[in-house]
Each structure stands twice: as structure tokens, then as C-alpha cells.
Amino acid sequence: MSYAYLFKYIIIGDTGVGKSCLLLQFTDKRFQPVHDLTIGVEFGARMITIDGKQVKLQIWDTAGQEAFRSITRSYYRGAAGALLVYDITRRDTFNHLTTWLEDARQHSNSNMVIMLIGNKSDLESRRDVKREEGEAFAREHGLIFMETSAKTAANVEEAFINTAKEIYEKIQEGVFDINNEANGIKLGPQHSPAAAGGMAAGGLGGSQGGGCC
């Protein structure tokens, strides 16, 4: 299926916070209470519509265990968006956010849009991290914030789509150079030959036009 843009996302956060479940809920619209351990990286993809345009999200789901962080550097390369996930019922997963954020900022391009996600919002009775704390953290670090539940699907669509919208806006504002794939954005097949070939020299303005028409 053809698309106007392709965005690369990564999902990061401690082990067991529900990264793979979020992905499954978003791509397959189902919840699997016991998910296989993610070792290395898994992939998912889904098409969404933003501003009347087809956008393909290519999502990389990564392993969360501490040891794997030394090798996650290459995950970040060329990602346009990141979902940074913690578990609202486990404070330690929230406490580790700063180190995840450091990793993300260090190894990715500076324009990457990061969405902070407090997952497992259906487990209100076991809540260990207040919503306000998540909001404060997001505000302080310039992230978008949302609480989701991969189980009930609450806010899952929104999390992925809002991130995409933000990326899309940045493209419109000319912040992202969409001719540079290192930014995690690709023009769709029907757009790219003209845009990449003919307008590369024209820079942002030109390629943006390519995406719009």
C-alpha cells in the first residue's frame, strides 16, 4: 500500500512495562496477557491518516533489560519518534526514566519526538506513580505525556497518533529535513522520485511541497 510518509518509531523503557503489548494493541488491536520476552528487537507497522495523508509507522520494539542497553545505540539511529514507557504500578520503572532519556538524547537526532507513557492505567488500585508526577517529568524534559492501558486499549491509538502528528507538524515547520533518512522519515514511493531527485537541492521548502501535492 502506498503512503506519503514513513516514520520510524522506537519503544523504550524498563523490562516488563508493556512495550510489546502496546505495540500489539496498536498494530493488531488485541491484548496478550503473557507476551513472549522481547530479546533484541521486534518490528510492527501500521498505516494511519494525518491531515488526509497516509502515514506508515514502522515501529521497533526493543528489549528492556539493563544489559541490552549497551547495544541499543543502533536502535535509536534514524528514529523520528520514541515512546518512552514506564509502568504506573512500579516506581522503579519511573525512576529509571532519566537514564533512558539520556540514552535517547545521546544516540538519536535532536529533533526526535519523545512521548512519555505511563502504561497499565487500568491497574488504578495498584498505582505507585501519580499522574501528576508523570506530567511534571514530561513538562520538565519537554516531552508529550499520556497514560495508557495496553489491556483496555485506552489512549493507545492516541499515543501513537499524537506522536505522529507532532512529527508531521515539525515537518511542516521545516524542522525535519525529510531528505535525510537519518531523521527517521521517508517519503512514500509515489512521492520520493521527484522529491528526492528533483528537489533535493531546493532543501526543505521544495521537498515539503513534494509531500503536500
Binding site: I39, G40, V41, I71, S74, Y75, R77
Partner: peptide, 9 residues
């Protein structure tokens, strides 16, 4: 393509 992302597993 960074093959190690797949083959590490």
C-alpha cells in the same frame, strides 16, 4: 540495515 538487531537474538 543493521543486521545485528535481528541476529543478536
Amino acid at each position: 540495515i543493521e543486521l545485528s538487531l535481528i541476529t543478536l537474538n
